[in-house]
Every structure is written in structure tokens, then in C-alpha cells.
């Protein structure tokens, strides 16, 4: 039958779920409506702003443009999964806080997920790498400067930590 529900298994922020969903459900709807993980935001609905960015199997993707069916068997991390459960922020979250890298905060979860994936993938990104990899995350409040600085500070810290 058209639209009949199907079952998927997905790991979200370390928890395993078996869910019965309509095939047309997007990953974004799955996270927000089924799992109550509203940290991932919907802002443009046409794959152009990056507010819904989450990490699927280590890659940043836009949850509005991935069907939930397509993450069957995969691991998803959302902004709720960045900090430790006992309240310790991730190094990037700390940096965003220190640099006042957000204002209204609506696009911040997406930016955090993009930059988290980037710093996993690249050891020592250049300024250009950072800007290119953050290109998909629109922001209207901050003018980008403070959060680019926050990301750079983490890169710097990591380098110093290595020495």
C-alpha cells in the first residue's frame, strides 16, 4: 500500500531505536517529531540553509534532505549528542560559548554539527578549508566572524595539545 509504514533500526546519539515510519518521513521529521530531538532545526525546507545539519556515519548531512528510511542501520549524531550526559560541553561547544559565536542560536546546532564533522575529518584545516566547509550553514545574526574564530581556536588548541 502506498505510504505503508516500514520498520527501520537506527542508532541516535548512542541509543538504538526500532521505529515504524512512513517512507516519506525525512530524517529531520524523525528526529524532531518521533524522537523529540528538537535541537535540530528546520529553517528553509529546501536544502539551502544547513540549520538541520546532523552527522550520519561521521558525515555532516542535511536532515531535511535525507529520508529517514535511508539511515536504516546507520548511526546519527545530533546536537543533543555532543555534550556528555553529565553536562560537559564538547570542545567546540566550549569554544562557541567563549567566543559568543551565536546570537539567536537557531542555526547554531547545524553549525556545531558541520564543524564537529569537519574537525573529525581534517586535522589542521586552513582558513579556506573552514570557510568552505561551513559554506552550507547560513547565519543571519552573527555575521560569521565570531564562530569562525571559535572553530579556529579549537584547531589552534589541538595543535598546542599535540606539542
Amino acid at each position: 500500500m502506498n505510504g505503508a509504514k516500514k520498520t527501520i533500526n537506527v542508532k541516535v546519539n548512542g541509543e538504538s531505536y526500532e521505529l515504524s515510519i512512513k517512507p516519506k518521513m525525512t530524517l529531520l521529521q524523525l528526529l524532531r517529531n518521533e524522537l523529540g530531538l528538537t535541537g535540530t532545526k528546520q529553517a528553509c525546507m529546501d536544502n539551502s540553509c544547513g540549520a538541520c545539519t546532523v552527522i550520519v556515519n561521521k558525515m555532516a548531512v542535511k536532515a531535511c534532505s535525507v529520508l529517514a528510511m535511508q539511515v536504516n542501520g546507520k548511526e546519527v549524531t545530533t546536537v543533543e549528542g555532543l555534550a556528555s550526559k553529565d553536562g560537559k560541553l564538547s570542545i567546540l561547544q566550549e569554544a562557541f560559548l567563549e567566543h559568543s559565536a551565536f546570537q539567536c542560536g537557531f542555526c547554531s546546532p547545524g553549525k556545531l554539527m558541520s564543524s564537529t564533522a569537519m574537525l573529525e575529518e581534517m586535522e589542521d584545516p586552513t582558513e579556506e578549508d573552514i570557510r568552505r566547509d561551513m559554506e552550507g550553514n547560513l547565519c543571519r545574526c552573527t555575521g560569521y566572524v565570531q564562530y569562525l574564530a571559535a572553530i579556529k581556536s579549537v584547531v589552534q588548541k589541538r595543535k598546542e595539545g599535540k606539542r
Binding site: 530531538l37 528538537t38 535541537g39 560541553l89 562557541f96 560559548l97 551565536f102 542560536g105 546546532p109
Partner: peptide, 9 residues
């Protein structure tokens, strides 16, 4: 409001 906004809460 930083911690709330940066953790998705």
C-alpha cells in the same frame, strides 16, 4: 543562554 542554545535544549 549559551549552554541551552549550544546543546539543543
Amino acid at each position: 543562554d549559551g549552554k541551552a542554545k549550544l546543546t539543543g535544549r
